[in-house]
Design a protein around this nucleic acid. Structure first.
Lengths: 331, 331
DNA sequence: CTGAAAGCGCTTACAG
DNA sequence: CTGAAAGCGCTTACAG
């Protein structure tokens, strides 16, 4: 590998001077010298060693991104948002799939420390009292931005208002005339699902509807759980339940499939609404109505905030991005 | 940040000794000393600086992964395969979305050089005569593995046999009794699509079917192009064409939608088969029959080969992974 | 405008 | 078994 020394020798200057033209500092360099150095760099094909540079400057221009699973259709847009923004701001991103595993999260967090990433973006860990990460983020001083609800009160976060969005979705169902609405939740410890359930309660109660216990069915955010939730629910098909509100799209799509297999029509017999607006929603039949979460912007904004943080700017504790109802054919 | 010096002072040894226990070298260290150092590391919360380490060892344990667009459903599994494997092998991965842009590719390649990644995995650049990358990979000495067809004869690659897989898919259609089969291709310069077209030709000719010129419709791998391909094709619906073979799933799904909108049934009136087996295929109605490309394994294997390469092992120039026909309801 | 030298935090050959 | 010192490839305060 060609080093700054080689360039210096080739251009007949000191490495100090090479470094100066490399970094385009204020420190003046005569035009001729600069020219000479530049051509030397060209001719030798010199690319400065970022490690040597980082060692001195104490920064890597690299950030760590922790997501849970890239094959979950919710994440690709987040990753794209983060990466696009990072690229524009001069950062590079290390991707980490944590698979909701505490062990893997810890492992990656440690790798991030050793690699001295400038900052971390953390998403999908919105699980109540997750001690490991909390401890990490308290003891370490790596700037971190959370996408979603932050488990740690001190970390800035970018999120949507799940309670409100969920309430609006359910209000819409009620406005359509539905009064017996089943909801399929995520895992019990998902803060996201807890909020979405709260919105469901608010909407029903506000309209004087008392939700029955068995209208709340626990799922786990996967297709399968939406499918079985409907399959095992006797009231669906007896004309009692007329609508299903799933806490994410995958479960909503699973529910639609089960409904159709039971011989009912969506939305005529049973209306369905989901949450997130993953790409899949527009390809299923009927198209799934859902709450659009601005995932790309969530990623983009998180990176922007992280960058501000790293530049020493003031940053708001919570940034809330708007959701909107996207209506297709399922309700 | 606590450094090796702090640990050394705290444990009352030299940094040499700390380094030794850190790296668990052969060089003997007395058990008591080792113990003392270990507790010092614990107590101080020391994480060795990977940059300092890398500067000396001349390796980063980091690899660069170039894909085209993470929101394209083909990529998440590849990325997951690469990352899982990287993690297991002690590597960290920098993700780069190149968006098929030459400029962005070059930019990232240069970042990779400056960061001194140990290796690169390159995918989705299977475009005929792509000079930039070729030049890069010839002039630089960064080990690189290509997923898909390699534009550079010297780079090891992991791929599937698109010609054969495509031929098998078409033979299957023919076996079902279809003789007039339309194919929707990718962009004209896509090596992948060129191979899949070749397989199509081989299957038809082998059965004595002379493909008509207008049976080959150019698409661009996007949903939309599959949709319009069918929409604008007059023969579909006149009972002439009975099957469609799309060069990827997104186009197949677009085609199905257009067929259904024209009032025909899949597969009764027109059979459809796709390629790749992206997750979407099992959620559309009818489920899409397709050629399964082992994307996760493609990623995993590429990383394994890269790792072998970096360890100085011999590595085969081309690794071909098997595809298989996955039949659902669309044909 | 230019350069010699110290230092960033490690590893390792060398000496003892 | 232990440590002093050189060196990895940069940046920057200091001197001229």
């Amino acid at each position: 590998m060609v080093t700054i020394k080689d360039v210096a020798r080739h251009a007949n200057v000191s490495i100090t001077t090479v470094s100066r033209v490399l970094n385009d500092t204020e420190h003046a360099v005569s035009p001729e010298t600069k020219e000479r150095v530049l051509t030397a760099i060209q001719e030798l094909g010199f690319y400065p060693n970022a490690m040597a540079r980082g060692l001195h400057l104490n920064k890597t221009k690299t950030i760590g991104l922790i997501i849970q699973d890239i094959t979950n259709p919710y994440y690709p847009s987040i990753v794209r948002g983060v990466e696009d923004s990072a690229q524009a701001l001069g950062y590079t991103v290390i991707l980490a799939n944590a698979y909701r595993s505490r062990e893997r999260t810890t492992k990656y967090l440690n790798v991030f420390r050793e690699k001295r990433v400038d900052g971390i973006i953390f998403t999908g860990g919105g699980v109540v009292k997750d001690a490991v990460e909390e401890k990490f983020f308290e003891h370490t001083h790596i700037s971190t931005v959370v996408i979603g609800k932050s488990c740690n009160a001190k970390l800035p976060s970018v999120q949507v208002n799940n309670v409100q969005a969920s309430r609006e979705a359910c209000e819409y169902l009620i406005k359509l005339g539905h009064r017996k609405i089943v909801t399929i939740t995520g895992p019990a410890d998902s803060t996201t699902s807890i909020d979405r359930l709260e919105g469901y309660y608010q909407a029903l109660k506000q309209q004087g509807i008392e939700p029955q216990d068995d209208w709340i069915i626990q799922g786990n955010f996967e297709f399968e759980s939406g499918y079985t939730a409907v399959q095992k629910f006797p009231a669906i098909g007896k004309g009692e339940i007329t609508a299903v509100f799933a806490h994410n799209d995958m479960m909503a799509i699973g529910a639609m499939k089960a409904i159709q297999e039971k011989g009912f029509r969506v939305p005529e017999d049973i209306a369905v609404i989901g949450f997130d607006n993953i790409p899949l929603t527009s390809f299923v039949t009927p198209g799934l109505s859902t709450v659009t979460v601005p995932v790309y912007d969530l990623g983009r904004t998180a990176m922007k905030i992280l960058s501000d943080l790293l530049s020493g700017h003031e940053v708001s504790r919570i940034t809330t991005l708007p959701t909107k109802l996207t209506l297709r054919q399922s309700c």
